[in-house]
Structures are given as structure tokens and as C-alpha cells.
């Protein structure tokens, strides 16, 4: 049986409960190719059921809801399978399985979580703000995983009272700090009026980047390993 859910936490937990006894259950939140005669269930989030499942899972592993929240942000194709196997494994062992690296389900989840963690760390460095005429900062990004709101606390801590927007252009949403509150909002396009000095500082940064390189020690493969090409799109020094 194939269980379709909408990608939210509640709907995942409902689907998880519904599919629990089903040995060949497939969970998915995306389009998928059905085989002939395959049965499908469209799961509607059931708050009561989800809350009960959450409480029971929390009793097994108090950090598992954090894992769920992160894994639901994953942009990977196998995400739903990894999630289902990880939570089934958790329920079956009745204890935290995070460090059981010899168990496939736990290891897969660990790897997926690590990938998301790596991208969050990378984005803290690779986000590039431009200054708008109003003094606010705007940064377009396009991460693999849905993580733009997780960057808010980091940049709030360092930018003080300056308002800023981190715009996930591929998911058409933005993490916003308006000077007082931070929130997430849907955002399609943005028209930016740059501040007078913006271009100059950007050129100076490009010049810095070119000057600090040592041409006789070229290691392009290493550079691309640390800073994959897909992140270059919004970095002025790489365009």
C-alpha cells in the first residue's frame, strides 16, 4: 500500500501510525509512479493520533522530534523511506537508535541528518548579503534542503538590529528579520534597490578574492570539494 502524506509533521505521524502494521507500506509526499493494481491511501492529518504518536515516540527518544523536523526538510529523493524506516526502527527497539551504526535504518538516518547539518553550516558561510538603499540586507539562496529559517538565529545574533531577508528562490519563501521579529513568509520575486556603495564594495571583495589566491598552488578540485559549484550562483566572487 502507498501512503501519501503532505510533508508536514502531523501528517507524517498519522501516516506512520496508519501504516504501522503494513509490512510493504511505502510512504511518500511526492509524485510517484504507481504499479498496476497498487492500492493508495491519501492520509489526512489527524491531530489526536499524531499527538499520541508523538508522546509515545518522545518517551522512547526525547530527541526524535528534532530529527523528524530536520529530516522533513531534506531535499533528497529517498527522504520518506529513510524517515519511515528510522521511526519503525525506533519503535521496534524501544530505545534511542542514533548510535547503532550497524543497523541500516539508523545509519541511513544519521547520514541524511549529517547532510542537512553540513549544509546548514556551509550556508552560514556562503550566504551573501547585498545592502539595499533602505539599509536592510537581502540574500538570495538556493539550498538543497529547506533550511533558510534555521539560519535566522545565527544571523540575528551577529547582525544586531539590521533587518535582513534570506530568500530561498527555488522554494519561493523567505526567512525575514524586520528589526524586531523574525518569521518565515512566502516570497516569489523581490525587487531590490541597491545602496549607493554596494557595487563598489562588491568589486573590492572580488579584488580581495583574486589577490589572496596563490596562483602557483592551484587546487581546483579541492576548492570545488569544499565549495560545490551549485552554491556559486549567488556568490559575487565566483560570478
Amino acid at each position: 500500500m502507498i501512503y501519501f502524506y503532505d510533508g508536514s509533521k502531523e501528517s507524517f505521524l498519522t501516516a506512520f501510525v496508519l501504516s504501522y502494521g503494513d509490512g510493504d507500506a511505502t510512504l511518500t509526499s511526492r509524485d510517484c509512479q504507481l504499479s498496476l493494481g497498487q492500492e493508495t491511501v491519501f492520509v489526512k492529518a489527524d491531530p489526536a493520533r499524531a499527538a499520541k504518536a508523538e508522546a509515545r515516540l518522545n518517551a522512547i527518544d526525547s530527541h526524535c522530534m528534532r530529527d523528524l523536523d530536520l529530516l522533513l526538510r531534506s531535499g533528497e529523493k529517498q527522504r520518506d523511506g529513510v524517515l519511515l524506516r528510522y521511526f519503525r526502527c525506533l519503535a521496534a527497539y524501544g530505545r534511542p537508535v542514533r548510535d547503532m551504526y550497524q543497523v541500516d535504518a539508523a545509519r541511513e538516518a544519521d547520514r541524511a541528518l549529517r547532510k542537512i547539518g553540513t549544509e546548514i553550516h556551509r550556508m552560514k558561510g556562503f550566504v551573501r548579503f547585498m545592502e539595499c538603499a533602505s539599509g536592510a540586507l537581502y540574500a538570495p539562496v538556493s539550498p538543497d534542503n529547506d533550511i533558510c529559517d534555521l539560519l535566522l538565529p545565527h544571523f540575528r545574533g551577529r547582525l544586531g538590529s539590521i533587518p535582513f531577508v534570506i530568500h530561498d528562490v527555488s522554494r519561493r519563501k523567505a526567512a525575514v528579520f524586520d528589526g524586531e521579529h523574525s518569521f518565515v513568509a512566502p516570497l516569489g520575486g523581490a525587487e531590490i534597490v541597491l545602496s549607493a556603495d554596494e557595487e563598489n564594495w562588491r568589486d573590492l571583495w572580488k579584488r580581495y578574492y583574486a589577490s589572496v589566491n596563490i596562483p602557483s598552488r592551484e587546487r581546483l578540485k579541492q576548492m570545488r570539494g569544499y565549495m560545490p559549484v551549485r552554491y556559486w550562483r549567488f556568490m559575487p566572487e565566483k560570478r
Binding site: 545565527h154 596562483p215 598552488r217 578540485k221
Partner: peptide, 15 residues
């Protein structure tokens, strides 16, 4: 602010 883990912002062609 300080970021105890450290943070790389870019990588030059010398790696």
C-alpha cells in the same frame, strides 16, 4: 559575534 566552530566563507582556487 564569535562563532566557536569557526566558519569558512569562501575558497580560493588554491584550495
Amino acid at each position: 559575534n564569535g562563532f566557536a566552530e569557526g566558519c569558512c566563507h569562501s575558497f580560493t582556487p588554491d584550495g
